[in-house]
């Protein structure tokens, strides 16, 4: 069975390590916050100027002056802090944030990512994505392996305008966990019940399969 969006988030949460500061993008990445492994401490950074972001506020306590990068009302946890946009991107550009999780329309085997623009369609903008992918050393992409027409989004080369070059380190899709290195995708794990053949068929980029590929443990 291919993973649901929640399960993709659950699998990515296993990548979190103790004492990490983490920036989560909009969509599936946001769900990662629901599955923090027990016994570790992480803090979530929201690029609009919040560190130590907490859950959505209890109904009736929402504050117009406290939102996340998706413009949703949020809370701040004990020990959290608030700062201006320039300081926020100093944290990102200065590599003080250990992990960035974001969505993508396409990922290429050289680590390129495209997630902000479809030519001919309304362009909403890149927000903070270009700063995040250009700076972070550890970038995990959360995405569906194929598009609605069944075409692979895991490619030899991106066809859409790029958000960043050579930056993606890992991809977690509804079918597989892939590592991006040496200009290839390396298959690390399969979704439960999904075969290597099915993953190969859904992957346009070069896929390296070394030995037995374990099923994801989620």
């Amino acid at each position: 069975m291919a993973l649901s969006k929640q399960e993709i988030a659950q699998r990515i949460a296993k990548e979190l390590q103790d004492k990490w500061y983490v920036n989560l993008g909009i969509g599936i990445p946001t769900l990662v916050a629901n599955y923090i492994p027990e016994g570790i401490e992480v803090e979530f950074q929201s690029e609009n100027g919040l560190l130590g972001m907490g859950p959505f506020p209890i109904e009736g306590t929402e504050d117009a002056d406290l939102i996340n990068a998706g413009k949703q009302t949020v809370t701040v946890l004990d020990g959290g802090s608030i700062f201006d946009s320039s300081t926020s991107f100093s944290m990102i550009r200065g590599k003080h944030v250990q992990l960035t999780v974001l969505g993508a329309m396409e990922v290429a085997q050289n680590g390129d990512i495209a997630n902000w623009k479809i030519p001919g369609k309304m362009v909403k903008g890149m927000g903070g994505a270009m700063d995040l992918v250009a700076s972070a050393e550890n970038i995990i992409v959360a995405m569906m392996h194929t598009n609605k027409r069944g075409e692979s989004k895991i490619l030899k080369e991106c066809s859409l305008p790029l958000t960043g070059v050579g930056c993606v380190t890992k991809v977690v899709t509804n079918l597989a966990v892939l590592e991006v290195k040496n200009n290839e995708f390396h298959l690390l794990e399969r979704a439960p019940g999904v075969t290597v053949e099915e993953i190969k068929a859904a992957t346009e980029g070069t896929l390296i399969v070394n030995g037995d590929i374990p099923e994801m443990d989620i």
Partner: peptide
């Protein structure tokens, strides 16, 4: 004004 009112 709140753009995305999200609550628990």
């Amino acid at each position: 004004r709140i753009e995305q009112r999200t609550v628990t």
